[in-house]
């Protein structure tokens, strides 16, 4: 069975100008209970890789530079 993907807006948004992941910071990736954040190989910045968000906020609260914003997922907004 071939697979197709379905578009989705991601709740967790990272301000790349503020994100310091390229300096080795992985705080948001480490604290996420659902493990949905990753560091991009291309941009070297954090991003939401999996749309599996509990909109709980440790990523935003613990980010040392205030780069992460948690929005309410569109389906329940």
């Amino acid at each position: 069975m071939p697979l197709a993907s379905q578009e989705t807006t991601v709740p967790v948004v990272v301000d790349e100008a503020k994100c310091i992941a390229e300096k080795g910071c992985t705080v948001c990736v480490e604290v996420c209970p659902l493990d949905v954040l990753r560091i991009s190989d291309m941009s070297k910045k954090a991003y939401m890789a999996y749309d599996e968000c509990w909109y709980c906020m440790p990523c935003e609260a613990d980010c040392p530079t205030g780069a992460v914003t948690v929005n309410i997922p569109y389906l329940l907004k």
Partner: peptide, 12 residues
């Protein structure tokens, strides 16, 4: 809501 992770409990 239909959002699989929009649960009452921590979805983990």
């Amino acid at each position: 809501s239909g959002y699989m992770y929009g649960t009452y409990e921590n979805a983990a």
